[in-house]
Amino acid sequence: MSGILLPIVVFLLIGGLASAWLLGVRLRREQQATGIMALAGMHWREFQRLVLEVMARRGYRQTGSTDMSDDHGLIELEHGGRMSLLSTKHGTAYVLGPATIAEFASDLQLRGATGGWMTTLGSVAADTRSLARVQKIELLDGQTLWKEIEPQLDPAQRAEIMGAVRARANRHVMLVWVLAGVAGIAIFLLSGRDAPAPAASQQAATPAATPAAPPRQPASTAAPPMTAPVPEDPAALASRRRKVADAVATLPWVDRAVWSTRSTLVVHLAGAPDRAGLCALLEPYAELRASRLQLQPPRDSDTPVRFIQCHAY
């Protein structure tokens, strides 16, 4: 009975902890990343309309022209008799930095606005928020916007986004339990193999000549990775891109990975990147191995965004 107890504990521990992480932390991250990509796929005017609804719930209303924005891409808002400006940047690769803040602050001063908002589906550069607060500018990045826009989406659209993420999470959970079962079986077999022989039989055994070790075979050269043929079906190409993004997201130093464009993979880092390990996942795909990789540092990191490429076009 004691021989089967440890494998069962290992099976339940691995499967339970991994499932809790996948359906908790990882699922929320995937829903957020998928939602941001869905917003990025909208027409920019539709995205502006959703942002204006967020502002309306905060008590701000658009003034002036009925157009979404003026020639400078700015929207005037009014609240309590005071005028503010709103800037929207549509795109997941956009990064709000000090230069952008300085330009927007100049617009606020020229128009006599008391403050403003800068929104983007991308991210905010390190040490930029403190500069924005001094200029009375509030920054809303992709994660913050998704939390506020998600309740405004059409229920069918939101269900479609969440359903796809949930289905992928369930597949990962099933895979985790299979791997947990394999680990439990391996421990059970190893524990039986390592059981000591009875003392009596060891004493009765006579020493025998140690058989000569077989001649060592020369090591074979490792075969290069196979390159899968490039399919012509657009659905198959999209499936291969999703597989690469899912594979990159499993690396221990990666938080998540999403395609911002067909040729740019945004890798959100959780630690120091390993270029060789990252490129190895793209190598089998001829149409993806030369993709641009945007290494996005953690939100509180001072490390700048980096762009690398495993192969030249």
Rank of each mutant, 00 (worst) to 15 (best):
I4R: 10
P7L: 04
I8S: 08
I14H: 08
G16I: 10
A18N: 12
W21A: 14
R26D: 06
R28T: 11
E30K: 07
G35W: 03
M37F: 02
A38K: 08
G41R: 00
R45K: 11
R45A: 11
R45T: 12
R45N: 14
E46M: 13
F47Q: 08
L50H: 09
V51P: 03
D70P: 08
H72V: 05
E76D: 13
L77A: 02
H79Y: 10
G80D: 13
G81F: 13
G81I: 09
L85W: 08
A93D: 15
V95Q: 14
L96H: 05
T100F: 14
A102I: 09
A102W: 03
Q109K: 15
Q109T: 13
R111Q: 06
M118Q: 07
G122I: 05
L131E: 09
I137V: 11
Q143Y: 12
L145G: 05
W146K: 06
E150K: 13
P151R: 04
Q152M: 15
E160T: 13
E160P: 00
G163W: 00
A164V: 09
A164E: 14
V165A: 10
V165W: 02
L175W: 07
L175A: 12
V178T: 10
A186N: 05
F188C: 03
F188E: 02
L189S: 08
D194T: 12
A195L: 15
A200W: 08
A200L: 14
Q202E: 09
Q202P: 04
Q202F: 07
A204W: 12
T206R: 14
P207N: 09
P211C: 02
P215A: 14
R216P: 07
S220R: 10
M226N: 12
T227A: 11
P231G: 02
D233E: 09
L237C: 06
S239A: 15
S239N: 11
R240A: 11
R242G: 05
A247M: 00
V248Y: 00
T261R: 10
T264Y: 05
L265E: 00
L265M: 01
L269E: 01
A270H: 05
A270N: 07
G271E: 06
A276G: 11
A276W: 00
G277M: 13
L293K: 01
Q294S: 09
L295C: 00
V305P: 04
F307N: 15
F307Y: 12
C310W: 02
H311I: 10
